[in-house]
């Protein structure tokens, strides 16, 4: 106890408090109140975790249950058998492998372009000297205030005019630019020491080489974080692809979900929840692996911006 106190004292630059104050402080830190608080917190956190996790577990369990198991009371926790009937029914109703491929391809292409365009734009805004840089940045910043949802009607009219409805181009092209990613990249680039690129400039390295051989490797953590945040939002995107994709062959997984509901009806729980499981579980698994980077991506925007 004294050890902890001296350590604490050591960490504080100039302990001005008198001894009684320290005594009071020690009692508060070690007293039964603190233990009780921790115990209460444990109970709360346990309950909270249960509320957060159980709906997802319940969904996975239900995806293996027959409709009569789902709708007869009292409910059973576990399905009577672990067969894949519901998943087969989903695949018979909608082209599931095709939708998975669509989701993967559209997410990959959109993310690649968003990151590349964002990197180029942020580099130009930080390292290339032009007189209109301030205006260019303001134009970029203002797009953050233009909600994507406001643009859907005119964009739909344009895409329909180009005959791009029910095409991949129609789904992908309108979302290729990212103001937010560019903004985060710019923040990161501005923190880089200028000597770094100046040395390369003296060596006669072109801007493209400076971008890809110096700036990008150093900024890898930020790029990875922005990439992951983009992947998550592209994978979950619903409204725009649901307007453009008319046939099941072009639908992404979330659009396929509502399409399945239209086909099967809202009461066909087993099948609907099997499809919901297919959409969510891969994302959850990937999330577990990349959590740290993803969190970094989400928090940089808040803490530095």
């Amino acid at each position: 106890m004294t050890n902890a106190l001296t350590q604490r004292r050591g960490a504080t630059p100039a302990p001005t408090a008198t001894d009684p104050a320290i005594g009071r402080h020690r009692r508060r830190r070690r007293g039964p109140g603190s233990v009780l608080l921790d115990a209460g917190l444990y109970v709360m956190l346990l309950l909270g975790t249960l509320v957060m996790a159980f709906p997802l577990i319940w969904m996975v369990l239900a995806s293996f249950k027959t409709n009569s198991e789902i709708s007869t009371l009292p409910l059973q926790l576990l399905p009577s058998s672990w067969d894949l009937d519901n998943f087969v029914a989903v695949a018979n109703s909608i082209p599931l492998p095709r939708m998975i491929a669509n989701s993967v391809a559209i997410t990959a292409v959109s993310t690649l372009f968003k990151v590349l365009l964002g990197l180029g734009c942020a580099y130009a805004l930080v390292f290339v000297e032009v007189p209109f840089k301030k205006i260019a940045f303001t134009v970029l910043l203002f797009t953050l205030l233009i909600p994507g949802q406001i643009t859907i009607i005119p964009n739909y009219v344009l895409v329909a005019g180009l005959d791009w409805t029910n095409t991949y181009a129609g789904i992908i092209v309108p979302g290729l630019a990212s103001a937010f990613g560019t903004f985060l990249f710019r923040q990161q680039f501005m923190q880089l020491p200028h000597s770094l690129t100046e040395a390369a400039e003296l060596d006669g390295a072109s801007h493209l080489r400076r971008l890809f051989q110096i700036v990008v490797p150093i900024s890898a953590p930020t790029i990875a974080a922005v990439t992951l945040v983009t992947i998550v939002s592209e994978w979950n995107e619903y409204l725009w692809p649901s307007l453009i994709a008319r046939t099941p062959e072009l639908m992404t997984l979330p659009v396929g979900l509502t399409h399945l509901q239209d086909l099967e009806g809202v009461q066909n729980w087993g099948v609907l929840l099997a499809a919901t499981t297919v959409v969510t579980v891969p994302m959850l698994v990937i999330f577990l692996f990349v959590q740290r980077r993803l969190v970094a991506g989400l928090t940089t925007g808040a803490v530095t911006g």
Binding site: L117, G120, V139, L140, I153, L176, A177, T182
Partner: peptide, 19 residues
């Protein structure tokens, strides 16, 4: 500047500002 930032601005102009 136009080469590097142009594509991003082009898409923003056509699909964010224009609409």
């Amino acid at each position: 500047f136009l080469l590097l930032a142009g594509p991003n601005y082009l898409v923003l102009m056509v699909f964010t500002y224009r609409p």
